[in-house]
Design a protein around this nucleic acid. Structure first.
Lengths: 205, 205, 205, 205
DNA sequence: TATGAATGAGACTTCATTCAT
DNA sequence: CATGAATGAAGTCTCATTCAT
């Protein structure tokens, strides 16, 4: 947690520091990010940094928190659900948002990628706590099983896993290529496969 | 390539060093792995290390080579393909092997994971050369499309991507949980979904 | 360029460091000079050194810069040219200055010698930029050829070379012997030979 | 002094070692030359090296000795003096030989250059002992002063110095450029200046 | 006599963190 | 509250030399 000293700073300055953090952690893993670099591009002294943050970890936690806040703010009023939506529809909505997010704040997304790539104790601990989204989708799946839309013999956790691991790899490739149309098509096909299967069995081809 | 000096060592000692490498590279990415740590746990002097390996990269390449050899040895006579096999059957075989591998040599698998996590030029170059598997599966898919087993409107690259991204996340979770039965069931279900779809449409449930 | 951190140090300390550098680079070529040695004799920590200088090269450039400054300061108001002077007169003036310099700051001169001795890319690049003096003297020679003082059949580059290679060896021997009177006499004679020749032909002896 | 063990080796092997030394010391100063490199290109073991030579210095001394021997052998029967020769004629002869030497054994010459560039205690001590040639020329000069060919007011040591420092710089530039004609012309002019002077005074121009 | 494995000091450099002012 | 100088451990790598076999 940043110190109160930090929160008493002028917004201007706080923003400079935040952006210096974004820049550094977007380009380097937590372990490899350099406080040196952060203070230089934030234009603050080394001493100040440690008056604001307890240490590098503290600084990183602050950064993640800010990003989460922005994310919330951005998506707050957008999500207007149609009660008829299936889990797949919601999933597509989520992907749309994610894509928008990447487009608007590619650096934030990159920070997430770097997080996945870091192997420090600290980061691994953080990643463990990331299951909220998974649970939500599992519940949607259960609902659609009740509704008779999804096969009852499917374990919701398994389907959730599929959706998320595909999510990850598709977004990653979009992040590197920025081929919006290609990605749309790819995701469409993936969902189609997950819905109807890839074999000709039962499909009208 | 390790020096001849290294290969002339008593097996005992070479093994110590090998294991020190395994330990270190299983716990840290290439970039963060410490030669200091390796020599300490191998019980050799700094000078000796550099008499065996040209540098850290050399040491890492040696490690990967050894692992590949062990892998080959383990799987040598197992792979007997049935000409009737679909791409899914082959995929399941591959997964079976991968799971066995994780079970026998979890550290080796972890080394692979850490490799994916590394950002350094050196590792990225190494990873580039790793696409062979993808291409092979894409060709199997095309074959099965010809055979009429797989929907012709599916892009082989997309389906390959699905298989591999699921692969990655499933193996990863197995790595952490070591629930063999659970994993078997999970993979079985995933493939079932990819084959037949997850919706009730066209499925006889 | 040394960091601002360095320039903010108390003069006392900066001087200690400067002198440690002088000592080390006077006794060893750039390549063989040891930062370890410098920090030890300057009484600073390894970390501090790198807070002052980017690297060894930076440190060396700083040293050269300081020496150049001192040199300038020492010679500033001395050089008053007589329009009648020949290239030999100017050369003698230059030598006088050089000798004074050696006398006052033998270590600085030694640093220059060590520089000539170094083979490294970095130093060779530095030395390349040192040809200004040669060109200047060549132009003086051409001027004196116009004036009819110097034989027109002489290649200015050749005569310049003679002057400078003699310069080098004479100063070097002075550096080792410190025989001021002897050196004066020796240089005087050398110039006399270059002017009038060493044979009796055409000399009124 | 190499050990007797060394001198008992087959000529073949001794030659290999000698040549490995030549190669290494031609490319690197004494301080920077690497025994590693020498044993590698000589194809001997590290242990053997130290059975032949006490240390690096010993090895270097051996090398210099061998080169001196070859030099002697090469020039032994060539020098047939004309009793009329002046010191300048002999000097020109010497230069011719030196040039031939560079042409035949550029590596040996380069070893000499590197020696001049080395600043280790050891090498500096060696260089001090190199005055034999100087004394010889001084005696020739004295002779020519007696003969009335050279101005009596010239200090033989000074003229010798001039000759040798010019020698050094001219050969050096030849070594780098290999412009044989240019060098010949340049030396010719230099000697002409030393003989007759560079000013128009007393010269028939 | 030959071998080559072992050594350890020392090279340059980076970095998060502390602390006196 | 801000500053920035100081620190020292740790990083990779090189090398001449020793010594057991």
């Amino acid at each position: 947690m940043p110190t109160s000293t930090f929160y008493n700073l002028e917004e201007e300055k706080r923003k400079q520091i935040f952006e210096a953090c974004v820049e550094e952690f977007a380009e380097h893993t937590f372990s490899e990010a350099s406080i040196n670099q952060i203070i230089k591009s934030a234009g603050i002294s080394r001493g100040s940094f440690y008056q604001y943050f307890a240490d590098k970890e503290d600084c990183y936690m602050y950064l993640l928190g800010e990003i989460a806040k922005e994310k919330m703010a951005l998506f707050k009023d957008i999500v207007e659900k149609d009660p008829q939506d299936t889990v797949f529809d919601e999933y597509e909505n989520m992907l749309d948002q994610a894509i928008r997010w990447i487009d608007v704040k590619p650096q934030y997304y990159q920070i997430g990628i770097r997080m996945d790539m870091d192997d420090s104790e600290f980061i691994q601990r953080l990643l463990k706590g990331n299951q909220a989204g998974l649970d939500y989708f599992a519940s949607l799946i259960r609902r659609d099983q009740q509704r008779g839309i999804i096969r009852k013999d499917i374990d919701p956790a398994v389907l959730t896993d599929m959706l998320f691991s595909i999510n990850r790899s598709a977004l990653m490739s979009f992040f590197y290529n920025r081929d919006f149309q290609g990605m749309k098509k790819q995701l469409h096909q993936i969902l189609d496969i997950i819905r109807k299967g890839s074999t000709t069995e039962g499909n009208h081809v």
